[in-house]
Nucleic acid binder design. Structure first.
Ligand SMILES: [Mn+2]
Ligand SMILES: [Mn+2]
Ligand SMILES: [Mn+2]
Ligand SMILES: [Mn+2]
Lengths: 227, 227
DNA sequence: ATCAATTTTTAGATTTGTCTAAATTTTTAT
DNA sequence: ATAAAAATTTAGACAAATCTAAAAATTGAT
């Protein structure tokens, strides 16, 4: 019966593409370019084209030749399901198994593909329904509700304002290790004491300590402005 | 560089074959037949032949045409690693997430392929280094030590002897649910009160209750004889 | 020892996911 | 408006894992 062959479940590769498209903004209204997906997934554009057709067949994306893809409702639901699993597993690894926040991503990349609704709901319950992952990213609920946090980059905050550190833009191990080394953790209050015009570096105060950080650091730290 | 292409890590399929071969006694001295593997894995013998060659190339089995396969030292190590993961995840699901023992196998089949030594060692630690899985099967240590339990089938115990229920031979959901329904759990003491010659059924006493069980039930329950 | 039954392997396809190289379409710059 | 550049798709290939059908080897029964 070839008609409804292999519609479900999704393969690991299909799931990874869906997630990548979501991260590139494929839930909005302007479509995501083939090359952008190829870069994000570290594959070739021709492979992306092949997959775009397959995902379109399955009703997960709308695909127009030479114009890229957009997630359908179903595609968005799917993406949120995978992201939910990824982030819950990250919380699990940190809270229950003492992983540090720079080690969890790689393992979560594997765990996010485990197929068991009961499993992830039980993990959610065990963790007492966390709202954010270790990097400050919001965790979609079981019903696919998903709220981006009110946040802005530290580099965009005005001089002498204060805010609470709520997330990172770059989750690379090297950046996270840098933050650990300098005792910059989520939840800390940061005050901008000075800005250097020459290189946009900042003098900040955090937990009674004052020090300089480069623009590159500030441009990868999210803070919530104190209201 | 095609010489050392794809030696590691093992694919999910390769891991499943290794595990199946181990379960069929591939660590002993008489080799495992192609057909037996095909049956165990629910594939065709021709597929098994293909895989046997691949595993032999990787040094995991010794394969002689028309004579089946035997695990090498390396193959045995690999099998024990996968079995360790499978059983630890089963314990985790039961102890930490309140799964019942008849639901865990399917999910553990997926989780056993997650590649992270740290992850499984941390799970082991969280569970306080359990020796047996929910079905009474022994869990290999990190170093691959593996001790089969001293046990025998209830059906082979002599009349009026008593023993402690320590495991199941059949882990099918229907059998496990039957045991739950009749409150036969691992750790309980069972006494054989009577044997029926006609159909080999038994009258047993367990937790102050007496009742009849068929030979088929008794032939799938492991007990440890009281010394 | 012979021959039939059984087991196992080979040959040739198929599906999924990937690649390279060439062709095509779209975009951008003049 | 045209041409060059960039993006995208197509065509054709390959590796992994599977299958079916046919061939070959082994086993077992007389
Ligand atoms: Mn991550
Ligand atoms: Mn994260
Ligand atoms: Mn199991
Ligand atoms: Mn088990």
């Amino acid at each position: 019966m070839y008609f409804w062959r292999n519609l479900y479940p999704l393969t690991r590769s299909e799931e990874n593409y869906i997630k990548a498209i979501f991260h590139l903004g494929g839930n909005a209204s302007t479509s995501v370019a083939t090359n952008a997906i190829a870069e994000e997934m570290d594959t070739k554009p021709s492979s992306v084209t092949d997959m775009a057709k397959k995902l379109a067949d399955k009703g997960l994306v709308n695909y127009v030749r030479y114009q890229g893809v957009l997630l359908t409702e179903k595609g968005i639901k799917t993406a949120l399901g995978i992201i939910r699993k990824h982030r819950l597993w990250e919380v699990f690894l940190v809270k229950k198994l003492d992983f540090s926040w720079d080690e969890v991503h790689e393992v979560a990349e594997q765990l996010e593909h485990i197929k068991s609704e009961k499993l992830i709901d039980k993990i959610d319950e065990l963790l007492e329904f966390p709202k954010y992952d270790p990097h400050g990213d919001p965790i979609p609920t079981k019903n696919g509700e998903f709220q981006e946090r009110d946040k802005q980059l530290l580099s965009e905050m005005p001089l002498s304002s204060t805010g609470i550190c709520v997330g990172v833009k770059d989750s690379s191990s090297s950046f996270l290790k840098f933050l650990d080394k300098n005792q910059i953790a989520l939840g800390e209050t940061i005050q901008i004491l000075d800005k250097e015009d020459f290189d946009d570096s900042l003098l900040i105060k955090i937990a009674e300590r004052e020090f300089h950080i480069s623009h590159q650091i500030a441009a990868n730290l999210f803070v919530k402005k104190n209201s």
